[in-house]
Design a protein around this nucleic acid. Structure first.
Lengths: 236, 236
DNA sequence: AGAGATTTCATTGTCGACAATCTGAAACAC
DNA sequence: GTGTTTCAGATTGTCGACAATGAAATCTCT
């Protein structure tokens, strides 16, 4: 039996969730300045718990705070995006190395379930935000299965950033959610017996994702993107 | 010319630094409960900035907060330690892959400088806390050189945890600081041309560190430590 | 005396008000 | 006209007091 953690009672946590959803869903434009007074009055709470929630979101990278200057929704430069992808690749490779021998029938069934959810939502076509969520949830499988709490925490920290960026990207180019066949291969590799193949596919998958999103970026002056620099296993 | 970032003016940041030093230096026993009222009165500040500072330390793992229950200094289980080491190994390997081709004369001089500082402090014998600090600063070299901001952030987040644990460990067993020759090899590898050798050494170095510290742990019931599960390159 | 209900008290979570700081524009000197 | 200074307005940072919660101590009933 699996029971979800009961909702945190404290307002701070509610605010964190609420604000995170607000940002990640793209309801506020990236770079937008947020004023605490407005937020607190709109949410019907005092500034004290709001400010604590803000601290949490700042340290997870969704907000940027400049003392006495203001609070801003995070913006993504091409360089930020590349860093996000490279770190993610490294972490996910680590997750697979750790969870590889722990894959039992229950775990694989779990993987299938997540995959089915994703496919269903993608095929339905509406609710692309949900598709993004499920896409990332699919990737969460390896982290959770690994049993590595610290690794999972690290993933949970960059997870909203990816979700946020995907939403931005999708809105900007009104594209459909993630492609189906890419995940077919991913899942197949994850079910297979060849860890090396999984890691290689992972790196390709990530590199493709990076290129796919990066080539559509309008900022073209930043020389941050160098597609090389293997992040998991390539050192030869 | 290198100018250090000018000190944050806000009290919150001062409190963060002050509290972090307090914890990391071992002045407060691990597992100890901290009461906000005491802290705020002792530090001569109100609870508002204190609580915001606490949020920051909680999200970096140095404090544990249970809503309405209390605030506690983080404790390390053998499992926590293993997770810290494995994640650190992965991140540091990534740092070296990223900085490898960026090592120029200035960077190597920087590395030497850090190494000399460490050796001097270790040989002087007093101030073991400073030795720990410099030990970790030596490792920071690769992260900073890599130019990978997100990676550096991740390192900065686990950095205090390591410092904290080393302090605890050193106090408990009144041992001298880090061994000298271990870092001779580390620096030599970092200066060399063989990235593979560096990564292999890194893994050995970390595994030894883990075993060295873990075998002295008194908690022996936790089966968390399984020395296997290579974290960087071993998948053969 | 012992188990359960109740009260008490310390501590955390939240609020509204005040002080410190930044931004921008208007006033001023050259 | 240009550059500097001053001053208002708005916003963030900080404070002290109050409400909500948890845990220990006290009380009650068998």
């Amino acid at each position: 039996m699996k029971l979800s953690p009961l909702g945190e009672a404290t307002r701070r946590d509610q605010i964190v969730r609420s604000l995170r959803d607000l940002i990640v869903s793209g309801a506020v434009p990236a770079g937008e300045r947020l004023t605490e007074t407005d937020l607190s009055s709109q949410m019907g709470v005092s500034r004290a718990p709001l400010r604590e929630a803000i601290r949490e979101l700042v340290s997870s990278g969704l907000l940027v705070s400049q003392p006495y200057r203001g609070l801003f929704v995070r913006e993504f430069s091409p360089r930020d995006l590349e860093e996000l992808y490279s770190l993610r690749t490294t972490l996910e490779a680590m997750a697979f190395r750790h969870c590889w021998d722990l894959r039992d029938d229950a775990a694989l069934a779990d993987l299938d379930r997540r995959h089915c959810d994703l496919v269903r939502t993608v095929e339905r076509g509406d609710d692309p935000a949900r598709a993004i969520e499920l896409e990332l949830a699919l990737h969460s499988w390896a982290y959770e299965l690994s049993g590595h709490r610290l690794l999972n925490e690290a993933w949970q920290r960059i997870h909203p950033n990816l979700q946020f960026y995907f939403t931005l990207h999708q809105r900007a180019h009104s594209r459909p959610g993630p492609r189906r066949d890419a995940h077919e291969v991913y899942v197949a590799r994850a079910r297979g017996q060849d860890l090396r193949a999984m890691l290689d596919h992972l790196e390709d998958h990530m590199r493709q994702g990076l290129l796919h999103t990066a080539q559509l970026l309008t900022h073209d002056a930043d020389p941050g993107i160098r597609p090389g620099t293997g992040t998991t296993t390539d050192i030869r």
